[in-house]
Amino acid sequence: MKEEAFKISGREVTAALHTSLPIMVTFVVLGSGYGILMQKHGFGPLWSLIAGIVIFSGTVQFVSISMLSSGSVIMAAVTAFMVAARHIFFSISMIGRYRREGKRKWYLFYALCDETYAMLSRDDAPEGVNVSAYRLLVTLFDQCSWIVGSFLGGWIGSLLSFDSTGIDFAMTALFATVFIQQWIDSKCHIPAVLGVAATLACRLIFGREYFLIPAMIIIIAVLMIMRKKIEEAETDG
């Protein structure tokens, strides 16, 4: 990838919008669901907006709703860490990519949600687009649409309520399309199979609350043990 100075033009905005569009639509809808739920618990749109800046993680925010009024601080801390732990995994794999992003890197890491990670770990910014600006804009568009959605939900939630049951499948579908594209692009399928198999096995063994951390440990361990094999398979023509 070519290294060049940060520069934003219409081209970067268009490319980032194209990438983020499905995420933005889903985030506005899911965010408004969050805002509505917050409102029902006595926390208005301003609270939802602040949570989108202070926490900015859909799963942590949804879990936090019931803890805001009655949870203990220790329980809240442990729960947030357990739910958010997968970000450790994502951040580790973005260190190399973001190392030349200067001060912007702190924003990029702070706002690295699942969906932004799925888009930016693919390294497929369109030809001729400034990669630094593209990364910043995709991250920003995703976060802003979540915050706008949650604010709207808390503010006029009752007006825009329609049956959105199942809308969260959009995120599963998004990850599935990335999964398929990666499968087509790579010669070595060990990492792809490992990701599904290890996580599924851990979900069955450890239960729904605790499976992510063991799954990540197993994945990293297997990737390190099989490093030679994986690297050889990827470079073989």
Partner: peptide
Amino acid sequence: VPDFILYLGKVVPFTAMGLLIVYCLRD
């Protein structure tokens, strides 16, 4: 940046999508 971090940076995205799909379907 340590060598193994760069390696993980390359391969983890390929495992992470499977992890995220299973995570989404955990219930």
